[in-house]
């Protein structure tokens, strides 16, 4: 099912010249994600250290768990001292915190945001809802398992987890990146068709390109 604003159309310039517009191509640029293999040896280790010590979080509150992220900025928890910072744009961030349940409508935006992030990117799934649906397991509108739609690096259980649990989860993510196992983006590129099939199964009005950068 496509929408009007994504269909090809022809507009006319003031001189009467026809201009063909294909919004999906012109505005979003399709294509497929590519696998970027990590370099070998000490350079990659150093890069991984830098990545793990400078985690920029995408400030996108997807569910009720977004409430648990705010205290991390306060003097009581102060996550900045561990190198976490909040960025307002997916382009610059490297960690996507899925904070709690995801409705189908939100999932669509989440996928777009995730795909706009640049390659070494990590997903932290927060709360029981992302693991097995939590208290919304029988809802008609919230997904049950996040790992069928996005590659998840770290799960943090709880409903909701306390900010301390979040810090512990981020710590786990750090260790994972330092060991070189934070390759979620490549996993996504490898199993792209499977992820896309799952996403399209539940997002019925698919009016975005298959992959936007």
């Amino acid at each position: 099912m496509s929408k009007e604003h994504t269909e090809k159309r022809i507009v006319y310039s003031p001189d009467g010249e026809p201009i063909e517009i294909d919004p999906i191509k012109d505005y979003f640029e399709g294509g497929r994600p590519e696998i970027r293999n990590p370099r070998n040896g000490i350079i990659e280790k150093f890069a991984n250290w830098a990545r793990s010590e400078s985690l920029w979080i995408l400030g996108f509150g997807t569910g009720c768990g977004a409430i648990e992220m705010r205290p991390l900025m306060t003097p009581r928890f102060d996550a900045y001292r561990f190198g976490y910072q909040w960025r307002p744009t997916p382009r610059q961030s490297s960690v996507f915190v899925i904070s709690g349940y995801l409705s189908v409508k939100t999932l669509k935006r989440v996928i777009r945001s995730y795909e706009q992030m640049q390659n070494p990117k990590f997903v932290v799934a927060l709360g029981s809802c992302t693991i097995n649906g939590g208290m919304y397991y029988d809802s008609y509108n919230t997904i049950n398992r996040l790992d069928h739609y996005l590659p998840v690096d770290v799960y943090i259980t709880g409903c909701m987890p306390r900010p301390e649990a979040l810090l512990a989860g981020f710590d786990h993510l750090k260790r994972k990146i330092k060991e070189g196992r934070g390759e979620g983006a490549n996993k996504y590129a490898e199993n792209f068709d499977w992820y896309k099939a799952n996403q399209k199964k539940i997002i019925k009005d698919w009016d975005i390109p298959d992959y936007n950068w």
Partner: peptide
């Protein structure tokens, strides 16, 4: 409308819950 059935058919329930 059976939401549980719909959810189980659509959203990949995790076994063992």
């Amino acid at each position: 409308f059976d939401t549980l059935k719909y959810s189980e058919e659509t959203y990949f329930p995790r076994p063992g819950r």
